[in-house]
Simulated scan of single mutants.
Amino acid sequence: MNTWFTQIGLTLVLMFSAIGLAQAGSLQGAEQPVATEGQIWSQLQAGATGETSSQSQFHNQAINTYDLRVLELRSDLLAPALMAALFGMIIIFILFIKVNGISKLHGGFSGKLVYRWSKLDVSIHWLGAIPCLLLILTGLTLLAGRFFFQPYIPENVWAGFVYAAKQIHDFMAIPFMLGWALMVTLWAKNQLPKMYDIKWMMVVGGYINFGPFKGKHPDAGFANAGEKLWFWAFALFGLLISASGMLLLFPNLFEPSRTLSLIALVLHSVSAIVITAFSIVHIFMATVMSEGGMECMKSGYCDETWATQHHNLWYDEIKENGTLKYKE
């Protein structure tokens, strides 16, 4: 739903309403006045209804006056916020890395790889991660493209681009929801808050390379405080984006009212903004910011130095209970 389609829809409603009234006036006599567009619009805003063969709720209502407020919210707030969540966070991280540098492993790589994630866990991660990235990019096109990209793209190219984005977005929704459900179910036990997470937050996890934070490596278990924050944000907003997405993807199945559909659209957009911002942070931390971090989700193993530096309590625990296992 966008402003262009809404304007066309309103024009058609007004045009056919005016034609119908004009025909009625001609049948009943020339003295019957024809309603003006302003009068018709006033009636529509007041909730005027018509006749339809559909039996679904609200189908006889020509327009929901909430529509325009949601469109304004989309163009003035939601679309710019999603752009900022994606490109703004990328710019911030690039500048931060230029000033701060990355978190290097003290003493370098040990050459010993410690078992951390099972093959199933790695598969589940990518089951959620790949659709998530595609949903972010296609969702950006659908939500904000009308305002930020379309003016610079030929109309025929833009039409094909939007159509492809919509198809990919709909197709990727199901594997994303499956990945989300498996992650939340299987990983929640390692994401519970601990008291030492507060200290981790206070020193920004030891990733600051200057001032009083330099060289600080706070305690962390299997997941550090930053990862836990991302996990629970993903769990909550993943639930909202999945539930609202189902309403929007299968309207004939759930038959939501038009107002509920608009609320779902707003919740879907807000959840997308939050998940996008956190995803950029997560991607930068895993691929660039933390030396050796990406290996965890490639092979399921991490370097021993990385384990002792970033997740020392977890490393001590598996070493003590005999579950420490190296890659052969």
Rank of each mutant, 00 (worst) to 15 (best):
T287F: 05
Y315H: 13
N190V: 05
H310M: 06
D170S: 10
G238Y: 10
S269L: 10
F231P: 06
Q55F: 12
S110C: 06
I102R: 14
L239S: 06
W187M: 14
L249R: 13
A277L: 15
G300Y: 12
A30I: 10
I318K: 01
P193I: 09
D76L: 09
M285T: 08
I136L: 09
K112W: 09
I94D: 11
L127I: 03
M195R: 12
E72A: 13
A144M: 04
E317G: 04
L313I: 01
M177R: 04
C296N: 10
Q45S: 03
I63E: 07
Q28R: 02
N100L: 08
H169W: 01
F176W: 07
F213M: 15
R69K: 12
G226Q: 09
E72V: 14
P251G: 07
F109W: 14
K104H: 10
V70F: 10
A159V: 06
V157Q: 14
S75A: 12
L249V: 11
I97S: 02
F148W: 14
W41D: 13
V34M: 10
Q55S: 10
W230C: 10
M289V: 15
H282T: 11
Q28M: 07
I283G: 05
E328V: 00
T276F: 14
A277N: 07
G9A: 04
G206E: 15
L324F: 11
W180S: 03
W158S: 09
C132F: 12
D316P: 08
L134P: 01
F210C: 06
N321W: 15
H106E: 02
I198N: 05
K194M: 13
V157G: 11
F234M: 01
P251A: 08
V70M: 13
W180T: 01
I241C: 03
R258S: 11
M202I: 13
P175A: 05
W4M: 00
L247I: 15
T185V: 10
W41G: 09
I102E: 02
L134A: 05
I102L: 04
W306L: 09
N190Q: 12
N312H: 11
Q309W: 10
H125S: 05
P251I: 11
L86G: 04
P218E: 13
A62P: 06
L86M: 11
G111A: 03
N100H: 02
T141F: 11
I63M: 07
L127S: 02
A24S: 12
F213L: 15
N252P: 08
E320N: 13
N190A: 10
I198A: 05
Y163F: 14
C132H: 09
P151L: 08
I283P: 06
Y115L: 14
G293I: 03
G128P: 02
L186F: 00
L77P: 06
L248C: 07
K214V: 06
M89S: 12
M89Y: 00
L133C: 04
A286D: 14
Q28G: 05
A22P: 03
F147A: 08
A223S: 11
E295Y: 15
S269K: 03
A129V: 02
R258L: 10
L68H: 01
I8Y: 15
M195P: 05
W180N: 04
P175Q: 07
A264W: 03
I130M: 02
L182W: 06
T323I: 02
S257L: 15
